[in-house]
């Protein structure tokens, strides 16, 4: 059986609605946070989990990490049922919730780590070695003596990640780990995750809204929407279906140059530039370039696929999310 096995997972939440006029009690409404979600994950996989806000991503992570009890379905992680054999299960996993903190606010980061050492019963030597390794990889050396409240968001996220990895978890859940980080911190974090994954074979499940995270890290992507699994496969396959539009920006030497273009490739003037969107499937790129060249002397020309966030937005729209 695979390392993580999820079958027909279900979770419902009860939401109380606003009290209607004249009614004494508020009405309750059932919300299906997860319905019939099934998947399997093998050891050492680096898997991205995407979906619009409220799709059920975090709920899945909370169930897999043993915090929530589902309303139906089977889940085993390394042979254990997370919410039933909670203590044995959580000893082997690490979790980072991007919007919450596990470290103590008013004490130096190092002291929070020392507490984690005792919580996970990490032997002294192993702890020292692991802490050294992690602080080097995450560039935390100078921050260990600093109270958490003085760290910047990026520094804090690195410190949180270190805390979640001290006990060498074989499975790591990351819930929006790059939220609010600057470019340098994001890149550093991604590099680190790749390193941890290849070095120790740590299985990583990542939920994010930042598609660059997925592009940089994940060989496999799952899309969740309205509590259902909509896609499971490689990022390339996912985007292949939606990556159908190219944008050409062209600038001519002559001010009045205007190429002859077919109807399905409309051109729009943007200052000195001419912006054309077309679909390579309907109209070959080579032919497009030839036409553009025929209309005058080209000073500058760029052909771009669409922004990946756009693609994802289109995909969500088509899936009616």
């Amino acid at each position: 059986m695979s390392y993580i096995h999820v079958k027909d997972l279900e979770k419902r939440f009860i939401v109380r609605e606003k009290r209607k006029k004249g009614a004494f009690f508020r009405e309750k409404k059932m919300i299906n946070a997860l319905q019939d979600v099934s998947f399997d994950i093998e050891h050492g996989e680096l898997l991205g989990y995407i979906g619009p806000n409220g799709a059920g991503k975090s709920t899945t992570v909370k169930i897999l990490s043993g915090i929530l009890t589902p309303d139906g379905g089977e889940v085993t992680v390394g042979g254990l049922v997370p919410w039933k054999e909670r203590k044995e299960h959580v000893r082997r996993i690490g979790v980072v919730f991007g919007q919450r903190t596990q470290l103590w606010w008013d004490v130096p980061v190092r002291d929070s780590y020392d507490l984690l050492k005792d919580i996970y019963r990490i032997p002294g030597e192993e702890y020292t070695a692991r802490l050294k390794e992690l602080t080097e990889a995450l560039q935390l050396d100078e921050l260990l003596r600093t109270p958490l409240r003085q760290l910047s968001l990026g520094q804090r996220m690195r410190a949180e990640l270190c805390g979640s990895l001290l006990h060498r978890p074989e499975l790591l859940f990351l819930d929006e780990p790059t939220i609010g980080l600057d470019a340098v911190s994001k890149l550093a974090l991604r590099d680190f995750l790749k390193w941890e994954n290849s070095r120790y074979g740590t299985t990583i499940l990542l939920t994010t809204h930042d598609m660059e995270d997925i592009v940089a890290l994940c060989s496999r992507v799952m899309v969740l929407g309205h509590g259902r699994k909509l896609f499971d496969g490689t990022l390339h396959d996912l985007l292949g279906r939606y990556d159908t539009v190219r944008t050409v920006t062209v600038r001519y030497e002559e001010a009045d140059a205007w190429p002859e273009l077919p109807d399905n490739a409309p051109a729009v003037c943007d200052g000195e530039n001419l912006v054309i969107t077309y679909s390579p499937a309907e109209y070959p790129t080579a032919e497009m370039i030839a036409r553009l060249q025929g209309a005058g002397t080209i000073r500058e020309l760029t052909v771009q696929p669409r922004n990946i966030d756009r693609l994802v937005a289109d995909m969500y729209r088509e899936m009616d999310l």
Partner: peptide, 9 residues
């Protein structure tokens, strides 16, 4: 943040 404490052994 209690979520973190819930996943401690």
């Amino acid at each position: 943040s209690i979520a973190y404490d819930l996943c401690r052994p």
